[in-house]
Design a protein around this nucleic acid. Structure first.
Lengths: 221, 221
DNA sequence: TCCAGAATCTGTACGCTGTACAGGTAATTG
DNA sequence: CAATTACCTGTACAGCGTACAGATTCTGGA
């Protein structure tokens, strides 16, 4: 008297869609296996047909958020190398800031998925083409990854659970306590991502930091 | 017939000691309220006499790990500023790498504790003394914090749960897939922190990255 | 065409989590 | 010495990840 059996073929993507939706609207705590299953319309353990455990779900989600192979102008070999790095950094940040709840998972596990690996390799190749020797290219790759992921993680860590966000004024004020010299004339963002406070506060800051890092690693004559 | 009543005055520090010990030996998952209470020798809910919830415990632990006010030579005004920044960065990294499980909590919440704030303010003052204007000093402070915390978090995220660590060879091999140009002649560390793989792999890398960032933010003539 | 096996889903259950509530005892204060 | 507060207890609840066994349906080979 127990079971209903095979109903329809779910897919990994449906599960990930549900997980991302829950993450977006309910914060990191909302993406439980049970919540995902309910959103998809199955019993909780049905998820385990497609993923061995919860870590596999979040890992796959992070991979998906890292995006497909070409990151804007990053893949365009006719552009100057700094522009290409900036395109990658901007693309990654836009992807993550659009899903702050999911972005919080970024630093919670080893970054060993195929897309993460591919990004590292492509970046390293680009830096070698730019004239860095192999050792410096490897190190600079790591430094750039630290900068991009660290910036995103710090930005996103400041957002508490969604819901009644603190007012813009409060958020700015709390940042200003320490970094009260940064002018607020930031330019607004694309329509895709809602202009959250995190977006508003630090786009300009992010690009400034990226270029200081690029200055630091640029080959010196 | 229920209760035994007041026994002895616990303290916040005892709770934090227990939490840190569990984190060190059992990884992030081991630091449960129940585990902490058991280690201290009280019922689980006794912890709530000293902290309002679990987030407060981890927050206080992070604050404690950030260390007291002087970070090595950071506070010494006779040293050159780059040396002082390096002292701060080294001190913070040593603190965190000695407790990888606790370091993983770093980016999991807003960094708004008093010590975190103080570090930011002191660093910003130092950069102003070094000749940066106020806007650049604020931005450079944020950049340095991103670098330090991002490096530590990425380093620590690679360590799975403690226990049967993967062999050194495996860890190196997996890093080398992407960053296979970095030579392994790293210098051994202080006796305090056990030479974990994370320590072994990236001390040199860390300082290299720090100095590239410092190059990027140094005032240009 | 039928049947075996694999794929997919279900109900149930276990041990764990954070923490709310209502008590009772010991130290402190008046 | 009485009253209050600080501290700790047992009990309980809802939610978590996930293991197990069984039922249904789809699929591929004879």
């Amino acid at each position: 008297m127990a079971s209903i059996g095979r109903r329809r073929a779910l897919s990994q993507d449906e599960v990930l869609d549900a997980a991302l939706a829950l993450l977006d609207q309910g914060g990191p705590a909302a993406a439980s296996i049970r919540g995902i299953a309910a959103k998809v319309g199955v019993a909780p353990n049905a998820v385990y047909t497609y993923f061995p455990d919860k870590a596999a779900v979040t890992g796959a989600l992070v991979e998906r958020l890292l995006g497909a192979s070409d990151h804007g102008a990053f893949a365009d070999p006719t552009r100057p190398w700094r522009e290409r790095v900036e395109a990658l950094a901007t693309d990654l940040r836009e992807r993550m800031v659009a899903h702050p709840g999911a972005a919080a998972l970024l630093m919670s596990g080893p970054m060993d998925g195929p897309r993460a690996t591919a990004i590292g390799e492509q970046l390293q190749d680009l830096l070698i083409q730019a004239g860095l020797d192999e050792v410096d290219a490897a190190r600079a790759t790591y430094l750039l990854i630290v900068f991009v992921l660290g910036s995103i993680a710090l930005e996103v860590a400041d957002e508490a659970e969604p819901g009644p966000l603190p007012s813009e004024a409060d958020r700015i004020a709390s940042r200003r306590r320490v970094f009260d010299q940064i002018p607020p004339e930031d330019f607004p963002r694309s329509a895709a991502a809602a202009p959250t406070m995190a977006t508003y506060i630090s786009t300009e800051q992010y690009l400034w930091g990226l270029h200081r890092v690029l200055d630091g690693i640029s080959p010196r004559p």
